[in-house]
Design a protein around this nucleic acid. Structure first.
Ligand SMILES: [Mn+2]
Ligand SMILES: [Mn+2]
Ligand SMILES: [Mn+2]
Ligand SMILES: [Mn+2]
Lengths: 215, 215
DNA sequence: TAAATTTGTTAGTCTATCCTAACTATTTAA
DNA sequence: TTAAATAGTTAGGATAGACTAACAAATTTA
């Protein structure tokens, strides 16, 4: 079986391919908080395993095999997060670190059972899609709140960043997935947005708006 | 944090101290399926960590610190097994291998939540006691069915061995914890027992009876 | 009790994963 | 378009945890 280390590298590479589409050594090193030479040697190893295409000094490409393997780990991660929130009563800001460990558990039955008990959910507690068993992952079709105009009414569907701090900030503002958000006003100068949802009226910075995915 | 390897060694040593009270290198090597030199060097390491007392060629003694640490891992193992059976619908023969992995998860909140959702259980699905958070473990006060006499009526409380094969055998005989067992007859020659429970009448070998703990 | 067997130890090696120091290629800026 | 900065690589080394081969101590058996 692949080591936890290999799985963590692969997941980071998959995510970077998903967001930045130029995957490079430095980005991986920062994400995993390891040195560049460590990344360099692991990347060669993953390439030898057929999970990446590697050429000296070129950006990395993840192979189909690598993509599927990564998606299966992400599936376990996101199913776990959903299970922790839905079945064990954790907050959405508490689950990532636990899932980061549980995603490495080798037991298809364990995750199949979670999936079943959850009713085969399509998204995790942060709105990210849960890949299917074959490693297929649904596209994110949402746009950022930052791209919306004054007067629009949208629904909060997902988050593009999910740090504990950001989630706690959203908790403090009483904002959760599914909220119906009305954009009251957009400040031209700094793109601050005055919004209303539920019985809340808040002003969100551009930084925050960029991380809120809506439809 | 201690590695999974360290935790697995410690758990084996604790269990052997519990059953055989002479803990030696060979026993550990067999239980973990590793070589004697591997055990020898790990034992020195555990001793250096203050978890064991080690003297060349002498039986090992686990320290109070080692006992507590082991009991906390066993607590996680047994809580997990109980959770898998009670909350996720697994059979008692399916849970050990999953628990063997989950016991290494570092998240007190995760196990506290299990504990709470289970209503603070005292025993795992095989009847073994669940240590408390301080590493305190209740004594097993049951006797073996093999020590019972003809005519006695007892209740099945726990198992002293819990291999998949044995658990499947018990499943096939419709025998579960809590069963009220009546001893109809004990064969003098080979100690086979003719017993009745529920609407079952079975003959159990001495081998089987020795593994059934009753009160 | 001496020999044979079992148990435990040491030495040396291997692989995985990390590191720092030194160097090279590529990219950016003057 | 050269110089500076950044990114990537190689070399060499550390540690954890496994192994085999060789040997030594302890125990059992003859
Ligand atoms: Mn997560
Ligand atoms: Mn992880
Ligand atoms: Mn178990
Ligand atoms: Mn384990």
């Amino acid at each position: 079986m692949n080591s936890q280390s290999i799985e963590n590298y692969l997941k980071v590479i998959f995510n970077q391919a998903f967001t930045s589409d130029e995957v490079n050594t430095t980005g991986i090193a920062q994400a995993l908080e390891v040195s560049l030479p460590s990344v360099n040697s692991m990347v060669k190893k993953l390439a030898a395993m057929g999970l990446l295409e590697y050429e000296k000094y070129k950006p990395l490409k993840i192979t189909e095999k690598g993509r599927k393997m990564a998606a299966r780990i992400i599936r376990k991660h996101r199913l776990t997060e959903m299970y922790l929130v839905e079945k064990m009563g954790f907050g959405w800001e508490e689950v990532h670190d636990i899932a980061e460990q549980l995603e490495h558990i080798q037991s298809p039955a364990f995750f199949d059972r979670m999936d079943e008990l959850l009713g085969f959910p399509k998204r995790d507690p942060h709105g990210s899609p849960i890949p299917n068993k074959d490693g297929q992952i649904a596209a994110q079709e949402y746009r950022s709140l930052a791209d919306c105009r004054s007067g629009e009414r949208v629904e909060l569907k997902a988050l593009s960043h999910t740090s504990d701090e950001f989630l706690k900030y959203l908790n403090s503002k009483g904002l959760a997935l599914g909220a119906q958000v009305e954009i009251l006003e957009v400040e031209e100068f700094d793109k601050n947005m005055k919004v209303a949802y539920g019985d809340h009226r808040e002003v969100f910075s551009a930084l925050v708006c960029a991380k809120l995915l809506v439809s």
